[in-house]
């Protein structure tokens, strides 16, 4: 394998059924239902997916949910805010561990 990520792989996602069709069918059926309009709108769900995609830094997901967010009626300003939500949580997750550091420092230092 020359590279780990290939452009055509996202479009070929369905081929994952080759090894186990029942599980793939169950997954894609569940996946489709998750993103339907519900208590959250399809656009809101797509923006959450876009934020998660940036958190897990999945290039397939970023590609897919950039298009999907636009198609579901989001614009660049909304999408950028979603990415900042991911960024804030991710940064905050590091920073809040600083309290662990701080407590330990207080224990050990005069």
């Amino acid at each position: 394998m020359e590279t780990y990520y290939k452009l055509d792989q996202l479009a070929r996602f369905g081929e994952i059924a080759e090894g186990n069709k029942a599980l793939a069918d169950a997954f894609f059926s569940y996946y489709g239902k998750v993103f339907e309009d519900g208590a959250l709108t399809a656009r809101e769900k797509s923006l959450i997916a876009l934020a998660v995609a940036h958190t897990i830094q999945c290039p397939y997901c970023i590609d897919a949910y950039t298009s999907d967010s636009l198609q579901k009626g989001a614009d660049l300003e909304q999408m950028t805010e979603a990415v900042h939500v991911a960024t804030a949580i991710r940064g905050g997750a590091s920073l809040v561990h600083g309290i662990q550091m701080l407590d330990q420092v207080r224990e050990k230092m005069m």
Partner: peptide, 18 residues
């Protein structure tokens, strides 16, 4: 109409958003 190179979204869903 989509403001770019993608297909129109679900009409009923977009109507509720709009």
């Amino acid at each position: 109409n989509p403001v770019g190179a993608y297909l129109a979204g679900n009409q009923a869903s977009l109507e509720a958003e709009w």
